[in-house]
C-alpha cells in the first residue's frame, strides 16, 4: 500500500510542479529543463536505482501525523547539504548524478560486536526484515526545516543483528570516499571521509532510523543513497549519508563537524531552541517551501520529539553538550 498524502501540500505551493505532472512530461521537455539548472539533473536518465529491496513500503502510523505537512518532493531532492558533491545546496543534485554508482553497495559492520562482516545493502534490508515508511521532521543546524517521508528500518534492528559486546558504548558511521566521482572530496582540507556517531543508547532509541528511500522510492544519490542515518531529534548533519562502515566502539568518535568547528558543532547536536548557534538564533526555523514571507515557525525542543528522547539526556547540561 502506498501512502496517500494530504493533497493540500501540493496545491498550496503554486510554484511547485506536482510530481505526477513532471513525470508525465515528454522527453523533449526533460531535455529543455536540463538547461535550467539543478531541477534538470533530477531527470537525468542515468539516475541509479540505489537499494531497491523492500519497496513499496508500508507507512508506520506510529511515526506520522496529520500535523506534519510533507515538504514537496522537488525541494527535498534539490536542496541538500552533501559537501562530498559541493558546498552549495544545488550542487549535490547535479554533481551526484553524473556517473556516481550507488548500486551495488556494500556496508561493513565491524568493531565490538559478535556478528561483523561485509553486507550487500539489499541483503542487509532482507536480514532486518524489510522496510517501512516514517514521516519525520528534519531540522538543519542552519535553521531550516522540512518534513520528509523516509523509507527504511529502525537502527536498533541492525544493532540487534550485530550483537554488540558489553564494551561497545558508541556507534560510528563512516560515509563513502571516492574523490574521482565526488567532486567535493577533491578539496582535501575537509578531511574525508565524513564521520558521525551516536551513543549506543541513542542509537537504540526507537526514532533512530536507517533510510534507504524517500517518498516511497529508493533514495536519490543527492539524499545519501543507498543508506543513510536519520535522527530526527538532532540537527541534520548527524545523519551521515551513503554509509560504507558501521563500527561499534568504546570511545566516542570525533565527528567531522566537531573536528572542523568544535565551537559551532558538538557531538550531540540535539535540536535545542535555547542554545544559539554562534552566527544565528536557533529559536525559530525557516520552513522549506514556505516562500519569501510565510516561512517561519518556532523550533521545538528535540525538534518535537521530547517525549521519545528526553530521558536519554537526563541530568546533562545541554548548553555544554551541544
Amino acid at each position: 500500500m502506498n501512502l496517500k498524502f494530504n493533497k493540500n501540500w501540493q496545491l498550496s505551493e503554486s510554484l511547485v510542479t506536482p510530481e505526477k505532472e513532471y513525470r508525465s512530461r515528454t522527453r523533449r521537455d526533460f531535455i529543455k529543463t536540463l538547461g535550467f539548472g539543478a531541477a534538470g539533473a533530477l531527470l537525468l536518465p542515468n539516475q541509479s536505482s540505489a537499494a531497491t529491496e523492500g519497496f513499496p513500503s508500508k507507512l508506520n502510523p506510529n511515526y506520522s501525523g496529520k500535523e506534519l505537512k510533507v515538504t514537496p518532493f522537488n525541494y527535498v531532492t534539490s536542496y541538500n547539504n552533501f559537501y562530498e558533491f559541493g558546498m552549495d545546496k544545488g550542487d549535490p543534485v547535479t554533481n551526484s548524478n553524473q556517473g556516481w554508482k550507488t548500486d551495488p553497495w556494500t556496508v561493513e559492520i565491524r568493531g565490538l560486536a559478535r556478528n561483523t562482516g561485509k553486507f550487500d545493502v539489499n541483503a542487509l534490508v532482507r536480514k532486518v526484515g524489510g522496510i517501512e515508511q516514517r514521516v519525520y521532521r528534519h531540522r538543519c543546524v542552519e535553521a531550516w526545516s522540512m518534513v520528509i517521508p523516509w523509507d527504511g528500518f529502525q537502527l536498533s534492528k541492525l544493532i540487534a543483528l550485530a550483537e554488540p559486546t558489553a564494551d561497545a558504548k558508541y556507534i560510528t558511521f563512516t560515509s563513502f570516499e571516492d574523490s574521482k566521482n565526488a567532486v567535493g572530496q577533491q578539496d582535501s582540507n575537509f578531511g574525508w571521509p565524513y564521520i558521525e556517531g551516536l551513543r549506543l543508547d541513542e542509537a537504540q532509541n526507537e526514532l533512530a532510523f536507517m533510510a534507504t528511500g524517500v517518498f516511497g522510492k529508493p533514495l536519490p544519490n543527492q539524499n545519501g543513497a543507498p543508506l543513510r542515518l536519520v535522527t530526527p531529534w538532532k540537527y541534520g548533519f548527524k545523519g551521515a549519508k551513503s554509509i560504507v562502515l558501521i563500527e561499534f566502539t568504546q570511545e566516542a568518535p570525533l565527528n567531522t563537524w566537531q573536528r572542523i568547528r568544535s565551537e559551532e558543532y558538538g557531538f550531540y547536536a540535539n535540536v535545542n531552541p535555547k542554545v544559539d548557534h554562534p552566527r544565528w538564533s536557533q529559536g525559530s526555523e525557516r520552513v522549506i517551501g514556505g516562500g519569501v514571507f510565510n516561512g517561519r515557525q518556532s523550533t521545538l525542543m528535540f525538534n518535537g520529539y521530547e517525549r521519545q528522547v528526553a530521558s536519554l539526556y537526563k541530568g546533562m547540561d545541554l548548553k555544554r553538550y551541544y
Binding site: 510554484l15 510542479t17 539548472g37 531532492t77 534539490s78 531550516w144 516561512g295
Partner: peptide, 18 residues
C-alpha cells in the same frame, strides 16, 4: 530568472537566496 525558470534549489529557500 531562477524564480521564473523554477529552480527548486532557489525556490526551496528564497529568502536565503535573495
Amino acid at each position: 530568472y531562477p524564480f521564473f525558470t523554477g529552480n527548486y534549489t532557489v525556490l526551496a529557500d528564497p529568502t536565503k537566496y535573495l
